[in-house]
Design a protein around this nucleic acid. Sequence first.
DNA 1: TGCGGTAGTGTAAACGATTACAATTTTCAT
DNA 2: ATGAAAATTGTAATCGTTTACACTACCGCA
Lengths: 328, 328
Amino acid sequence: MTSIKDVAKAAGVSTATVSRVLAKNAPIKPETRDRVLKAVADLNYRPNLIARSLRVQKSAKIGLVVSDIRNPFFTAIGRAVEDAAHEQGYSVLMCNTDEDPDKEEMYLNLLYDENVAGVIFSPTHQFDIHSQTYNQKMPFVVIDRAIESNDVDMVLLDNVAAAHELTEHLINNGYKKLAGLFGDASTTGQERSRGFHKALKDHQLNPAAAHFISPRIQQGYETAMNLLSQPNRPDAIFTSNSMLTAGAYKAARDSKLNVPKDVAVVGFDDTTWGALVDPPITVIEQPTEEIGRTATELLFQRIQEPSRSPKTVILKGSLIARGSSKGK
Amino acid sequence: MTSIKDVAKAAGVSTATVSRVLAKNAPIKPETRDRVLKAVADLNYRPNLIARSLRVQKSAKIGLVVSDIRNPFFTAIGRAVEDAAHEQGYSVLMCNTDEDPDKEEMYLNLLYDENVAGVIFSPTHQFDIHSQTYNQKMPFVVIDRAIESNDVDMVLLDNVAAAHELTEHLINNGYKKLAGLFGDASTTGQERSRGFHKALKDHQLNPAAAHFISPRIQQGYETAMNLLSQPNRPDAIFTSNSMLTAGAYKAARDSKLNVPKDVAVVGFDDTTWGALVDPPITVIEQPTEEIGRTATELLFQRIQEPSRSPKTVILKGSLIARGSSKGK
DNA sequence: TGCGGTAGTGTAAACGATTACAATTTTCAT
DNA sequence: ATGAAAATTGTAATCGTTTACACTACCGCA
């Protein structure tokens, strides 16, 4: 490994001078600068980021901690964050917690120890920001899931309104016996449940069912199968994320029910397949690009000005009405 | 930040002793050990990974560089790699190149500078391992896409055989005018094309068409639309990855053609939606879990024994026959 | 002429760990 | 009791940077 010492020797200057040339933050005689730059080029020198990070106690990396990397919502966020971070010369380290609080803590610690400049993450349900060691030390932006704290930046969807709109869409299309499937791993599911119930109440309807379950395809499938096999089965299934949507949709199919005539299926997040299945699925599309970009911007703001008062940005989802809820 | 010095002071020993207690690699008097461990616990001390990494010139992290994080194939690999790495106490940093050679080089440099223990990655087409600075220095395992080098570990699919099997499946089910859509960003597309053509030749058939295109949904859609609108349109479309499959499937739908009666659509990778659409899609399933795990194991082997002679592991895909190719 | 200011550079101390080497104490066979 | 070997611990160098501080040279102005 060629180090700054080698460059200094080759250029006949001190390591301090080399460092200053590279950092461009001090006056240097043009002739010296040229000698140094030539040496850098000749030796193909690249500064050791580890050493720099140890010395200055920070780095040009940000962490992105998500709960499930297989969820298209999060990969879309990942892309947006990466693009936005790149523009500022930062790199992104993605970590996957699998909804596991232990893994979450492990990765947050790791990122902290790595001196990342900040972290964007979607906390598990159990996450308590105040109990953490790194609380005050590492800039944070929370996405997708609210946490109970008013001193942290967040980028969220207006889940209640979105769920309300989606539910009303069902009601307006003539569905009356609505069942809800909500993820139990986050506040998102709870908020969407609130919007769901509020819309029902607004129209003087009672929910046919409402279940909080693990946000996995299999769980969604089993629960929906159960609901659909009852004599007084629901005529619409509202799901709070794309994993549950997939499960519910499959259940409708396997129950030999016609979508949308016998039962409607709607959900969140516009995935590749949601538009490809027949009938295509009505969903609330989240502005993933904007969520990721906004979160990154908030993070950079906080990095620059740690004492800035916290912001919560609430974005709106947009309804994409498709065949799966067209009416009976 | 509490450092090893604070712990040493609190326990009344030297920093060397603290380090030794934590590394568990030297004899320590039980009583001293207890004092040190108590101090560690009291101060809530965690060793600084940056400093350690600087000193020992390596770290317990591996890099995973993939070309498209939105491709479910790669996220599945990501999960497998992470699980396998975790078992060895390693963390995984995921990076996304977006098929961009510049980003690829940038991330490989970054990972190198970060002292990662090694890298697993799927190279872009242009990647030339020999021109790279880090060539000999950082252990590598290449996945999914072959590169021309016999001194590097690789984990690949037997693409020719898999494509051959998938093509024969079409032929056996009565399809005769087969068109192929292949990704142009990697060797994978080329190899699958070879298997496709070989199977046709084995059955004395000529390809109806064969296109190398950018592996994106939109490209697949446009190309397939074109093919299907011709008077002498193909009766089956073979696609070499799931992005193209999605595009082709949508094109068949939009052309008002019946799948599988008018046209069959088959592809690679078993995605969530492939089984949910109607008809569900016949695919070659890649053993993603095994690919990720094997790659990780090879990487650890090479880390331990850098001079070990390189291995190429070739895994088999398995055909999942579904409705989209059931025959006319 | 003398003096404050600035440009340009070097010296050396950090950052927080690991580890070769040395020093001290114990153990134990004779 | 004694010396060699083993066990236990400490000292200090090191990894590759950045940067506070010190120093020299030169400039411009009174």
